[in-house]
Design a protein around this nucleic acid. Structure first.
Length: 516
RNA sequence: GGUCCAUUCGUCUAGUGGCUAGGACGUCAGGUUUUCAUCCUGUUAACAGGGGUUCGAUUCCCCUAUGGACUACCA
């Protein structure tokens, strides 16, 4: 443990209350990277007896997407992440939707203007766009900073009577932060450690838009302060704006919370961060739940992942307990989680490992649970099977599958006689005497009263031994007519489950088709 | 381009100023299974490169390379 992490630990234990927030924008389905951010916030909150808050950051009305808010909440619920304070849960620090806090932000923007740390700017987006493309042509980057603001249209460069007149005339304006020209800003990140940035590389960020809404930067700082957020745990994409955020806290005279910037989730192959396209291309979901609006997207829930497996997999992507334990319940994750064991570098998402986690969780289900789940699947297909029979069946095939829906692929022959027979197997196993042997077996089975797996197996093996037949020669063609291929569980388990009548029927059918 | 962040097996990762650099997924090979799958056992494979510091660096420092994020009146 680094010295900084140690000090940090001492610090959090001395703090009165841990309050963390997950603050997504309702602009579409929640990406699994977002889910992981929410999860780490939640684990950290619960580990420290703190509060987990959901705040909706919907200050950009143009990008608002209908249904996204519900999607976010349903996703968290599916994952087992319980919100303590939020738009539905309420709390003493509401409202929890930024659109409903609109009136709050203006006051704080004005405070900064009065203090001289912010100013009005009247440049139109078109003007700025022109300036940007011009400097780009000249090979420079346009930054709205201390040097250029003197030449542009704002309350710093303009005479006081001029800009006041513009204000009175109702000319559109934004409020920008007045970034100092040349100052080293020092700040700490729990995961990254000490960082220094010089303000000359920063720009005068817009805090308040001409539509009367704050930007992320203002709203975020004000809300985190007002909601008494103790730790900001968010994605690494926010690291570049951390200096600005520190400056804002300083300007307001507030104590900043502690920050932890999480590494990103990367695509399984190639370069860059995980996107929806990767999932489509490689056949795995990038979203927790199916997203039915607009461009539809697959979800882990609908693909048959257990939420416990999904959460377990996600938790270990970028964090580890330092032990060799890999399977964790939510309670165990909460118990084991510490921020100082979150890695610094981005993690490639591995769909194979995700499947492995689900396999582990599926094996730990009882046959009864699985039978119930599989029955739902069968119902959708028009099969109605007794639950006790399904428990037996599921017990026969569960270890070969990772998902409930895979049970069907492993067990279709339990429900229907083969339509076709694997040509490879016929070529390899079907001999001159196969038909005769099968016919003999057929009449042997017909006479058996105890059609349990053990019952039939005993009789058939005795018969084989008695006659001195070759076991493989019989069993392989037997499997062929029952299953249609060279796969599946123990053959006597299969015939016991389908019953004597069906077994005989399948032998007859096989004989008539292959045996001619 | 600029700023910031990162870099241990193919992937997720453990780890230390001196270790045969550990585990998991995957791969491959055996074994079990009369089939297929599972399972078991084993195998495979890594400290990005170059300089320092040091008796000794994968570990500490610097440079380079590579990757990533950001660079909007989006979050």
């Amino acid at each position: 443990m680094s010295i900084f992490a140690h000090i940090f630990n001492l610090f959090i234990h001395s703090m009165a209350q841990v309050r963390v927030r997950f603050a997504p924008s309702p602009t579409g389905p929640l990406h699994i990277g977002g889910v992981r951010t929410a999860l780490y916030n939640y684990l950290f909150a619960k580990k420290n007896n703190g509060t987990f808050i959901l705040r909706i950051e919907d200050t950009d009305q143009a990008r608002f997407v209908e249904g996204a808010e519900e999607y976010i909440m349903e996703s968290l619920k599916w994952c087992g992440i319980i919100i303590d304070e939020g738009i539905n849960e309420g709390g003493n620090y509401g409202p929890y939707r930024q659109i409903d806090r609109k009136e709050i932000y203006r006051k704080y923007a004005d405070m900064l203007i009065d203090k001289g740390d912010a100013y009005y700017a009247f440049d139109t987006p078109e003007q700025l766009e022109t300036l940007r493309s011009e400097s780009e042509k000249a090979g420079n980057t346009f930054i709205y900073n201390a040097i250029v603001r003197e030449k542009l249209s704002n309350s710093v460069s303009l005479q006081e009577n001029l800009w006041k007149e513009k204000l009175e005339k109702g000319e559109p304006y934004v409020i920008r932060y007045k970034m100092p020209h040349n100052e080293d800003i020092h700040f700490e990140d729990i995961i990254r450690g000490h960082i220094v940035v010089n303000t000359r590389t920063l720009d005068d960020k817009i805090l308040f838009k001409s539509d009367g809404m704050p930007t992320y930067h203002l709203a975020n700082i004000v809300d985190d302060h007002l909601m008494e957020i103790s730790h900001v745990i968010r994605g690494e994409e926010w690291l570049p704006s951390l200096p600005l955020h520190f400056m804002l806290y300083r300007s307001f005279g507030w104590d900043p919370p502690l920050f932890a910037h999480l590494p990103l989730l990367l695509k399984p192959d190639g370069k860059g961060k995980l996107s929806k396209r990767d999932g489509d291309k490689m056949g795995f979901p990038v979203f927790p739940l199916f997203w039915p609006y607009g461009e539809t997207a697959k979800g882990y829930r609908e693909e048959g992942y257990y939420p416990e497996a999904f959460v377990n997999m996600l938790a270990l992507l970028g964090w580890n307990p330092g032990t060799e334990q890999e399977i964790f319940s939510m309670e165990e994750l909460i118990e084991a989680f510490t921020i100082d064991r979150v890695g610094k570098s981005g993690s490639r998402f591995d769909p194979e490992k995700a499947k492995w986690f689900n396999h582990q969780y599926l094996q730990n289900r009882t046959n009864t649970q699985l039978a119930l789940e599989f029955r739902e699947f069968l119902r959708a297909r028009g099969y109605h099977v007794d639950i006790v029979d399904l428990e037996t069946l599921v017990g026969l095939v569960k270890e070969r599958v990772s998902f409930v829906k895979d049970i069907w692929e492993q067990a279709d022959f339990f429900f229907q006689a083969p339509e076709t027979y694997d040509q490879e197997v016929i070529k390899k196993r079907w001999k001159e005497n196969s038909a005769a042997l099968l016919l003999e077996l057929r009449f042997l089975l017909e006479k058996i009263n105890d059609f349990s797996a053990a019952g039939t197996e005993t009789v058939v093996k005795a018969w084989i031994g008695e006659k001195g037949y070759n076991t493989g020669a019989i069993m392989n063609v037997f499997r062929l007519v029952i299953v249609g291929a060279s796969r599946g569980p123990h053959i006597f388990d299969i015939i016991s489950w389908i019953g004597k009548q069906e077994t005989l029927k399948r032998i007859d059918k096989g004989l008539s088709i292959i045996g001619k």
